[in-house]
Design a protein around this nucleic acid. Structure first.
Length: 104
DNA sequence: CCCATGACTAATT
DNA sequence: AAATTAGCCATGG
């Protein structure tokens, strides 16, 4: 079967509402309990089977930097802006306020 | 089991 | 504030 880890990650990403974002670290904390699993999370997201179905562009780095994207970082920024997320350079404006809280 | 990889993070310089 | 370093973790060979 699909690795339970990847499936858990994708499931989390799918829950992110439009106009909001989250970080690799937060997802890692939700699943493994450790923010240090961020790399593993990034792997899972990067290898996601459905880039369209999975809003993987809503996952950014802990410092507000957009991070990477399979189709290019600029593409990711475009998608986010189209959803109402302000981005300055490569960083999210009002980053903390744009973060989505899974615990609720 | 060991080694290399990567869309990461935190701490240090 | 930008660049470096070291630590962490799932996955695949």
């Amino acid at each position: 079967m699909n690795t339970s880890f990847q499936e858990a990650v994708l499931n989390m990403v799918k829950q992110i509402p439009r106009g909001k974002v989250t970080t690799y670290g937060e997802i890692g904390r939700e699943i493994t309990g450790s923010v240090r699993a961020a790399r593993a999370v990034a792997q899972a997201v990067a290898r996601n089977p459905y880039p369209i179905i999975i809003p993987c562009h809503r996952v950014v780095r802990s410092d507000g930097n957009v991070g990477g994207y399979c189709s290019g970082i600029e593409k990711k920024i475009k998608l986010l802006r189209a959803e109402g997320v302000e981005i300055k350079g490569r960083k999210v404006v009002k980053f903390k306020q744009t973060l989505f809280d899974f615990k609720k």
